[in-house]
Amino acid sequence: MRRLLVGLIVAVLTVTGLLALRAELMTVEVEQPEGSYTEVLVAADVVRENADVRAEMTHGLVSTCRLLVNADVVEQSFRAVGDGVFAFRLRPGLDEFDRRELRGCLSDLRVQHLRVHVRHLQTVTPADDDRRRDGTPAAGRR
C-alpha cells in the first residue's frame, strides 16, 4: 500500500513536471502587430578576459541568439548604456515563446568567459508607443 502511494506520487510529479516543461518549451509562433519591436537590456560580465572585449563578446552573443528567434538586430541599436550594460532592439517584435528562448540563449554559457544577465526584455507594439507618447503606462509584454 505504501509502495503504491509512493509510486502514485512519483507518477503525478513526473506527469506534472513533463506538462510544465512542455508548456514552457513550446515553440508556437504568435503573430505580432506590424511595427512591433523588442527592447533588450543586458548586463555583461567577463571572467579571465580583458574588459575591453566585453562589448564585442556581448555583440557576438546577441548575433548568435537572434538567429534562434529569427529576428534582426536593428542597425546601430546595439549600444552601451552603462558599465557593462548594453541595450539593443530586435525587429520584428518577439512573441512570448521567442522571448523565453532569447532570454535563455542570452543567459546561457554560449560564449566562454562571458556571463550575461538579462535585465529587461519587452516587446513593444505601435499601440504601446502611442500610449507612451500620451503618458499612460505601456502594456508591453515582458
Binding site: 513536471g17 510544465a20 516543461l21 518549451l25 532570454r103 535563455g104 543567459s107 546561457d108 554559457l109
Partner: peptide, 15 residues
C-alpha cells in the same frame, strides 16, 4: 538540469 531546460539554457543543461 531540469531547471536549465525549463529556462532554455541548453549549454548549462548539457553541462
Amino acid at each position: 538540469a531540469l531547471v536549465y531546460v525549463y529556462r532554455w539554457e541548453w549549454h548549462r543543461a548539457l553541462l
